[in-house]
Nucleic acid binder design. Structure first.
Length: 127
RNA sequence: AUUGCAAAACGUUCUAUCGCUCCGUACUCAAAUGCGGGGAGGAAAGUCCGGGCAACAUAGAGCAUCCUGCUUCCUAACGGGAAGGCGCCCGCAGCGGGCGACAGCAAGUGCCACAGAGAAUAUACCGCCUGCAAGGGUAAGGGUGAAAACGUGAGGUAAGAGCUCACGGCUUUUCCGGGCGAUCGGGAUCGCGGUAAACCUCAGGAGUUGAAAAACCAAAUAGGUUCUGAAAGUGGGGCUGCUCGCUCCCGUGCCGAUCCGUCGGCCGUUAGAAUGGGUAGGUUGAUAAAGCCUGUUAGCAAUAACAGGACAAGAUUAAUGAUAGAAAUUCCCUCAAGGGAACACAGAACCCGGCUUACAGAUUUGCUGCUGUG
């Protein structure tokens, strides 16, 4: 239910390149989401990756902190926010969420924003 | 006692819920799941030195380029460390402390702002001596400057000058003595502006690339080679990481035109099997190491030898977390109870030894001086 295993992460380099070249994307501050429909055989309806630009945050500690908070927010909300909608529509996607905020937001704010992103994404994919 | 500086050793803890990663184990063809256990640092950072490891290169010598530069020792090695020498600073001397790219300017060449007459074979401004004058001699005095031809005294002279002598300072070569040595003490001798983080000279050293190195694995897809067929005239290069594609040459090849010399266009295919390469992927490399902790012995010390101990992080789009609640520490408000806030620098990526830089708070030790003289 609240798992986040390797199958749920996007690891394949070719898929990632394809996603950033051909995928659709939208902004929802402080995130930038890119997604693409896929035919690949995967256990979960979504394969996701999180990214924080090194240009914006110079220290690895800061990048780790943001990525961990994003991951946690996704892990706890993915089931209700997006899995159910995608399963109902029988669609599978690969997804990347980049952080473009200028400062490190606390967890409770990130949680609300993440919910908003996922809801918007589910609406777009099903449409 | 406080403050500051330096060194050493620390640098939050506990509980609950939900997760991540690795290992062991039960069940199992396997996966999943259950149970048990491990899971960031003193700098993991900067990537500045030195090694291990790997691939490639490699007759020998010289030149160029780059690095290093007091001595001895330690070390796998070092530009690191220890002990010492020398110089400078803490007013001076001794002890103590701090700092030092600390070989050579007495091989050659260059440079020395401004000011000043003059910055290195002294173009002599004032002054001094000589001379009727023009001029000549003179670095002792003045003034300038970061620095003015080693300093003081005497002789000497027209006036002066290491020109000569005595004492002193720094220095070259050499002898005697102490020390493994840097070097120190004494004698003789040569010389007297600074600058080598200026060119340069001397001595020693350096092959290149780094784990995205490198080794291995078996399926699928496309192409290469070989064999067997179909068809049959069935080739060769260049561009591109590969295929496709484009292009050049070639052809008793085909079609069209032709002044019979040529010109334009087209074609150069495909099925199966075997084989060895490349790519995405996986495994190894890769976590038991010149490692860490404790003790004994040797040594002034760096360190070495020996003995014992620890189920001793291992990710790979990259784990080591999130939330909630207590406690500790510090600060603020308050007589107090209590309330509020803060909690550094920073995240392993092949592995070690160093260096450098960052760092809230807190612990220990040492120093910031002591004695004598003025």
């Amino acid at each position: 239910m609240y798992t986040f295993t390797k199958e749920e992460r996007l690891c394949n380099k070719r898929l990632i390149d394809g996603l950033f070249h051909n995928g659709s994307s939208f902004l929802c501050y402080p995130f930038r989401a890119s997604w693409q429909l896929t035919d690949a055989v995967q256990k979960f309806p979504v394969q996701i990756l999180f990214s924080v630009a090194k240009k914006r945050y110079k220290h690895a500690v800061d990048r780790n902190l943001i990525k961990r908070r994003m991951r946690e927010a996704y892990r706890l909300q993915k089931q209700t926010a997006i899995y159910e909608a995608l399963t109902a529509a029988d669609k599978k996607i690969i997804l990347s969420v980049g952080y473009i905020g200028k400062e490190i937001l606390p967890y409770d704010v990130l949680e609300k924003k993440m919910l908003k992103v996922l809801t918007q994404l589910a609406a777009e994919v099903v449409k």
